[in-house]
């Protein structure tokens, strides 16, 4: 089994798109830009803070994401595409590897419904008694819904969109919905690269848990406290075999190993929580990125289901970052 090096990182956080934005924010001690969700004004969630990346449309244009592709993408899907593109371009995977030899190991969060996208559908599905009616759904609700919404809610769509965007055709796995599942994506990517199943792997996650529907569920399930900030984010990493990277005299962030076990011990422990808020399924990839960028020294995340992942990042011998 070969050692696995990290050669690309792509991030979208509430501080903005790109790893440099996160690095500057954390190095500068900037507070997480957070706000409350207007849709939940006057409710028990009125004071629950969320943090979301802004100016996404401008970022999509800047990144050159095809507008048509983005019609199929949920908000989390857009974040995933932006992060994956940054990571893939840094590692130049499009020119260095055959598409069939690049694997995709992704994770996604809870299914979310955007009120803005579904308002007509919900209103049209209201029966004469004011309750949901399957009859009305068939008569009017479905007609008010853009068929593309069906793609947006399928959890595999985000990673599939980025496979189309980046031309990735190799082995793949997509997990959901918590930290341990985000960790599993990275663990599987390390295994696939190390064993030679793929030459390169894109691994990470994207999530938008700061929508109204997700906040309601997270609150119901006792998974967020009033003091938590719930953040939308995405993080993707590019992994390659270290020996081949060294052979090509190329630099890397470091050599990564990971260990995931179902600890059933303490739950919900994320060392970046204070800096980045609750990022759930994205937390493990964000932690690896922060380790690579030397923004943290902590190396373990425990998910809400008790899965504990610990990462070990060994310095790249040349001590040089891309």
């Amino acid at each position: 089994m070969s050692e696995v090096a990290i050669t690309g990182i792509g991030l979208v956080t509430p501080f903005g798109c790109g790893k440099s934005r996160l690095a500057q924010a954390l190095a500068g001690g900037l507070p997480l830009p957070s706000a409350c969700l207007d849709e939940l004004n006057g409710t028990c969630l009125a004071t629950q803070k969320i943090a979301i990346p802004t100016d996404l449309q401008a970022e999509q244009q800047k990144a050159g994401l095809p507008p048509r592709l983005m019609m199929y993408a949920s908000a989390a899907g857009v974040l995933g595409c932006l992060a994956a593109k940054e990571a893939a371009e840094e590692a130049a995977i499009g020119v260095r590897f055959a598409p069939e030899r690049v694997g995709l190991y992704g994770a996604t969060g809870l299914t979310t419904a955007s009120f803005h996208d579904t308002a007509g559908f919900l209103e049209g599905s209201k029966g004469p008694d004011g309750r949901f009616s399957t009859r009305r759904l068939g008569e009017a609700g479905l007609r008010a819904l853009n068929p593309l919404e069906s793609f947006k809610i399928l959890p595999n769509m985000g990673p599939c969109l980025l496979s189309i965007l980046l031309g990735i055709k190799g082995p793949n796995l997509i997990f959901s919905p918590w930290e341990e599942h985000g960790a599993a994506a990275i663990v599987e990517a390390i295994s696939a690269v190390s064993s030679g199943e793929v030459d390169c792997a894109l691994a990470g996650a994207a999530d938008w848990p700061s929508s109204a529907s997700s906040l309601i569920f997270l609150k119901q399930a006792g998974l967020i406290q009033e003091t938590d900030v719930v953040s939308a984010s995405a993080a993707y990493l590019v992994l390659e075999r270290a020996e081949e990277r060294r052979g090509g005299s190329r630099s890397a962030y470091g050599i990564l190993t990971a260990d995931l076990v179902n600890s059933r011990g303490d739950v919900g422990d994320d060392p970046l929580r204070e800096a980045l808020g609750r990022t759930f399924v994205v937390a493990p990839a964000l932690l690896v990125a922060a380790l690579c960028l030397r923004l943290t020294q902590s190396n373990a995340v425990v998910g809400v289901r008790g899965g504990r992942v610990s990462f070990r990042l060994r310095a790249w011998p040349e001590e040089r970052h891309p």
């Binding site: 796995l173 997509i174 997990f175 599942h181 599993a184 076990v261 179902n262």
Partner: peptide, 8 residues
């Protein structure tokens, strides 16, 4: 030891 949910 590990529990996974695949959404492919």
């Amino acid at each position: 030891n590990v529990a996974l949910t695949n959404v492919s």
